[in-house]
């Protein structure tokens, strides 16, 4: 494994580790607000920021942080003021950001390949300064997202309730927008601006296949995000002598593979929960009728779903609900 003794590889692994932790941490709150694509929108806006940096010769990271933050706050304002047409307004912003970025890069005489580093990530070209900045910003995101999780949870869960609880809703909304923007710029060098949202959303989608509580979802998503980013980078490094495997897409595809693996389990768990949900205890329904002759006795071993119904149990059998009544079964 001498590949891992290279300094550039160690820097890349550190960046992947911190990005993998931070992106799902803030992503969980975005998914909770049903704004899973906000990261993608900020990513598009950040392209203009990167191009501004390239055009003016300043650090693209800082201009991207500035423009992405501006874009995220603007998205938040549109969301707060907007109506059902908010998504159209967001789309206007997204494409404005992407087109502006590509145009500015051309004007600055930069080649498309320079912009490509930011669009699809170039984790192996990070300098020590880049890595330290990534670690610092990712730490801020994780500390805020986890430390303020009671407030952010209440806000994302029910904005009206949070407001009447005396929470400073607008300040926290802006905070979430800024944290999302910082995350996007942190992840930009790892997976690229066009794939950032995947690292914020896919681990959360994977985690919630199996979880029932918010806390476990948040922590599991952070673990899965770290596993995907470190694992994807490692895989691309190990395969590098055989084929050109770009780390960014490898990370995203690994995260998606995780989702593909857990989704059937989640499907089964949800199906089971639905089947076993108690039947409502309706008192004015039709009178129960005799279900007729029955080849076997229902019980815990019979394989038919046993569903609570008022004070007894119904067995779901070929679309019928059989309830024990003395020697026979009633149709419920």
């Amino acid at each position: 494994m001498d590949l891992f003794s290279y300094a550039f590889m160690q820097r890349a692994l550190l960046a992947a580790l911190f990005t993998g932790l931070a992106a799902p941490a803030i992503g969980t709150f975005l998914v909770q607000r049903r704004m899973a694509l906000m990261g993608d929108g900020i990513g598009h806006v950040a392209v203009t920021g990167v191009a501004l940096g390239l055009l003016t010769g300043t650090s693209p990271t800082w201009t991207a942080v500035a423009v992405a933050t501006l874009g995220a706050v603007l998205i938040e304002v549109i969301r707060e003021r907007g109506h059902t047409n908010g998504d159209v307004a967001l789309a206007l912003l997204f494409y404005g950001g992407l087109a502006g970025g590509v145009l500015l890069t051309g004007l600055g005489g930069q080649s498309a390949s320079r912009l490509q580093e930011f669009l699809f990530g170039a984790i192996t070209t990070l300098s020590i300064g880049d890595v330290l900045l990534t670690m610092a910003l990712a730490t801020v995101v994780v500390v805020c997202a986890v430390g303020l999780s009671p407030q952010l949870f209440a806000l994302a869960h029910d904005q009206d309730f949070a407001r009447v609880a005396g929470l400073r809703v607008r300040a926290y909304n802006v905070l979430v927008a800024v944290l999302a923007a910082v995350t996007v710029t942190v992840a930009m060098r790892t997976v690229g601006l066009l794939l950032v949202s995947a690292l914020m959303v896919v681990p959360v989608a994977t985690a919630q296949q199996l979880t029932r509580s918010f806390r476990t979802t948040l922590l599991a998503a952070m673990l899965l995000g770290t596993a995907a980013s470190v694992g994807g980078l490692t895989a691309s490094a190990l395969l590098s002598d055989r084929a050109t495997v770009a780390p960014g897409p490898a990370i995203v595809l690994l995260a998606l593979a995780g989702f593909a693996a857990t989704w059937p389990v989640g499907l089964w768990l949800r199906h089971r929960a639905r089947v076993h949900a108690p039947f409502p205890d309706v008192d004015d329904g039709p009178l129960p009728e005799h279900a007729g002759e029955h080849p076997h006795a229902h019980g815990p071993e019979c394989g038919h779903a046993a569903v609570p119904h008022g004070d007894h149990v119904d067995y779901v059998h070929d679309g019928h609900r059989h309830a024990v009544h003395g020697e026979h079964y009633d149709e419920h």
Partner: peptide, 14 residues
């Protein structure tokens, strides 16, 4: 909401 939450967690947010 968009992410699973337990009954206890929703009540605790109050």
């Amino acid at each position: 909401s968009g992410v699973p939450a337990s009954v206890w967690e929703v009540v605790a947010s109050g």
